[in-house]
Design a protein around this nucleic acid. Structure first.
Length: 108
DNA sequence: TCACTGACAAGGG
DNA sequence: ACCCTTGCCAGTG
């Protein structure tokens, strides 16, 4: 799966993340063979305008809500996660290992 | 064109 | 187990 427009691929993967689960920039970047997890962040930054993309379900490899400052208000990211049953404490996902979801798990 | 930046991640100290 | 450095690559000035 190597399309020129990785941004759309990132959106597609993000939409596949099940409710109540979270994924990471690195996992998505690896699945799409982007070579850099930062590109996922860049892509998602633009997605904030499009609210049909659950960007709040993507966190960094430590389980921290590193992108919360790009939501308005910044607490919105945590609010959405908690609304889905994902506990967040001090900007970190509680039981991150348990909530983590990888695109490689996507089996039709 | 060069240099710096950034919603990241892995490895070494 | 934590902190810092290095690698990464598209955007921006």
């Amino acid at each position: 799966m190597k399309n020129g427009y990785y941004i759309e691929e990132v959106y597609a993967i993000t939409q596949l993340i099940p409710k109540g689960r979270v994924s990471t920039y690195g996992a998505i970047a690896d699945f799409l063979s982007l070579g850099s997890a930062r590109m996922v962040g860049w892509a998602l930054r633009q997605s904030v305008a499009a609210d049909n993309i659950p960007a709040h379900r993507v966190v960094n490899h430590k389980g921290e809500l590193s992108g919360r400052n790009f939501f308005s208000p910044p607490t919105l990211m945590q609010k959405r996660l908690e609304a889905e049953g994902v506990r967040v404490s001090n900007n970190r996902v509680v039981d991150f290992e348990r909530c983590f979801w990888s695109p490689t798990e996507y089996k039709l």
